[in-house]
Amino acid sequence: MTAAPGYAPRRTLPLRVEIVRQFKRRRTIVMFGLLLALPWILVIAFQFGPQGGDRDQSLRISDLATESGLNFAAFALSVSASFLLVVAVALFCGDTVASEASWSSLRYLLAAPVPRDRLLRQKLIVALGYSAAAVICLPVMALLAGTLAFGWNDIQVPGTGETIPALDVLPRFGIVIAYALVSQLVVAALAFLVSTMTDSPLGAVGGAVGLWIVCTILQAVEALGVLREFLPTFWNNAWLDALAPELEWSGMIKGASVSITYAAILIAVAFRRFRRKDVVS
């Protein structure tokens, strides 16, 4: 009898248990509340702004936001993708292991025993699930809020001002969300790696967001030339191509490639480190 009766490593820490453990956290609820409320806040903000009138030639994404629900959703995504969603994803993935360490509950899970690889795997799946829910819920709520506030009209493309029928663009919107998910994978992986290295949940989130900011700054240095293409943030806005009149894949494919590359390596490093780590928290 090497193990207690009924114990099987592959049955430890079921996803359902981990989801419940994370869901009741105030942090989770506040973040989802914020993401769901943001579109409505934006709608109200647009209602306060000067109405219609002489719209000049500028066809910026923010000027077009009130044209239709789809335009509004694209706008909401564009203002949140570069930071808010990054923070949300970093929060869910950076917090997951580090918070257990800070509560000291990590050692009891490991001594339960939940095998280390399995603990990380289950936590990663649940954290990615929450991140995906966050990335999806914002544009979907924005679509709902925008449609209620501004109507279901054809989308007007930023830059050129061309219009695309709303029904044509709806599947494109799916592509946008899917790409946003893939491009946030690298944030998730980075936050997760930091999470396995520190006992401070905010340190993990802040570390991931901080590195993200550094990449964004580096990206502005044109002297880096082609090297910038390999920065994880470089292709962050490639989803705009999905809303262009001609659907353009190349940017999104490159972005997905870079994101998956970083994510795979970062996650592998996280597993490798955690497997051998002395848990002293």
Binding site: P9, L110, V114, R116
Partner: peptide
């Protein structure tokens, strides 16, 4: 780390 036999161990260490 994570050896199955740990399931026969109950522990309370450092709080």
């Amino acid at each position: 780390p994570g050896a199955p036999v740990l399931s026969r161990l109950g522990s309370f260490v450092e709080g």
